[in-house]
Design a protein around this nucleic acid. Structure first.
Lengths: 234, 234
DNA sequence: TTTATTGGTGTCAAATTAACACTTAAAAAA
DNA sequence: TTTTTTAAGTGTTAATTTGACACCAATAAA
């Protein structure tokens, strides 16, 4: 006899906080929910965990459904289990955050979902506890990016130091001194200067850099203190 | 009609990685599993999430069942969702870690469970993915303790600097210079020196300290770099 | 050729870090 | 009572890291 037979089984979902950076602002990919309850309201992309898939697999599937992207940086954020988070039936949600290069996002794939990139500073009302999820995701992104070179996942292969700095400034909602910033970033040895310049956003043009992939993988756990006083972060 | 009706519902458990410190070694509270599958094998304490409780509530209940303790430091670690983690039926587990003052643990409460404190360096074979959970918990404890004064949760109200240092040394499995250690710890302003000494473990005796609770709460997010090169931690 | 704009760089003082060794208190032993 | 043993407690210094700060360079547009 099955010892577990009397136990409650619970609907299990994954939800995905998808970050992108357009060169100026940090953004989130939100959708208009396509089914009840709360049909038509803003929501994170999510889906039920199927019997045949792990959380990681479910999240990757859901993310691909929306963005068309594979091999995206995905990290489990938190498991949300409040009893009434979904009014229709108890559903727990394993939230993940994703960091994607916004330029790789293929719009057509997601037209079913009415997806939109929304600046993190202007997130609309959301269903259920999705606002809370986003708050935690932003905090975790700050926390983690202060210690690990995670934000490169949001940039294209080639990027400039001013772009990188404005990404950091977006994530921390603050401004850094560019001399100190470039000194710190370059001292990690993670960046390789290119010969070309990015010319659209200034007259002088800014040199492109690429990540040293080998060094990135080796040093992912051993980054820097990009953020002064990063230990004060929540 | 219920839109969710066709979705899979999954057994949901919580498991608890319980840390304690006996003055010398970092330990884990393990039990001998009381039911099938794997009855009699070593296991973390856990239990199914009931329809009426959140994850936090379920974990607090399970922890109280085993230890008799309330108000313990508990933090969600990770949600484990591999399909075959439980061979009998798919069961996901939300793992939490707990930090308790080992002296408050009441042995008789748990006799049902055949609980034992086991040094983290000598953990026996465990059921399911519990070994993996413990590994993650130890990593997270290291990570977090490098940035926040979390380890005080493992100590009694009064403790000495040598005790505190050996706790840190246990968590990081390394040794620190006691001059640098005490300077750093005291510079946080978190500790209040007492007039009495602890006399059992040395002839000279070591002064007791207490946590400044107010300062502890205010500075929990803004601790120290107790650990040289803590940013290199995983 | 002048102007406007953004990119890129260097110095210095202050703070922090890590390395390092001797004295002190008190119990135990002689 | 003196001596010995053991662990506690403390300070200095050199090296590194940090943060504050301002000017020149390149280029397109006027």
């Amino acid at each position: 006899m099955n010892k577990y037979s009397k136990q409650t089984r619970i609907l299990t979902a994954v939800d995905c906080i998808i970050f992108g950076f357009d060169g100026t602002e940090l953004k989130l990919l939100l959708i208009k929910r396509a089914f009840e309850p709360q049909k038509g309201n803003w929501s994170l992309m999510g889906g039920f965990v199927q019997a045949t898939e792990s959380f990681d697999e479910a999240t990757a599937r859901v993310l691909k459904q929306l963005t068309g992207l594979d091999g995206v940086y995905l990290e489990q954020l938190y498991a949300f289990g409040a009893i009434n988070r979904d009014p229709l039936e108890r559903t727990i949600s394993i939230a993940y955050f994703a960091l994607i290069d916004i330029h790789k996002y293929e719009k057509q794939i997601s037209e079913d979902y009415h997806a939109e990139w929304v600046p993190v500073k202007q997130v609309p009302d959301l269903i259920f506890d999705h606002q809370h999820m986003i708050k935690m995701a932003r905090e975790k992104l700050q926390y983690k990016a202060a210690l690990h070179p995670i934000l490169f996942e949001l940039l294209p292969e080639k990027f400039t130091l001013p772009q990188l700095q404005s990404l950091y400034e977006g994530v921390y909602d603050t401004e850094f001194d560019k001399r100190n910033f470039s000194r710190k970033v370059l001292s990690t040895g993670l960046l390789v200067k290119q010969k070309e310049k990015e010319k659209t956003s200034s007259k002088k043009g800014a040199f492109y850099y690429k990540l040293n992939k080998r060094s990135y993988k080796a040093n992912f756990q051993a980054f820097l203190n990009i953020i002064p006083n990063s230990h004060k972060l929540k």
